[in-house]
């Protein structure tokens, strides 16, 4: 799943998968603006067939957090 997530990020931000680590965030990835964030959410939702709530969107501030939230969701 982590790999799939990285794939999505790499695609959206037009970077290499290897460039993505736990700390990747809008601070470290130039292309990661609010618009791209919205599209990231949609892509993740489509890829994993889940729905992400506004609260969760707000919490997804870096790759680590995104992973945690999605892992949590996939358990349910």
């Amino acid at each position: 799943m982590e790999d799939q997530l990285k794939e999505i990020l790499a695609n959206i931000f037009n970077i290499q998968k290897s460039d993505i680590n736990e700390d990747s965030s809008p601070e470290t990835i130039v292309a990661w603006d609010s618009l791209k964030h919205m599209q990231l959410i949609i892509m993740i939702e489509e890829a994993l067939s889940i729905t992400i709530t506004p609260e969760e969107i707000a919490e997804m501030v870096d790759f680590k957090k995104i992973k945690e939230i999605i892992l949590e969701k996939s358990k349910n």
């Binding site: 999505i8 695609n11 959206i12 037009n14 618009l35 791209k36 599209q39 892509m43 489509e46």
Partner: peptide, 10 residues
Amino acid sequence: VKINTFNNSV
């Protein structure tokens, strides 16, 4: 379509 990038670069 599942769009996997929002870039215009393509």
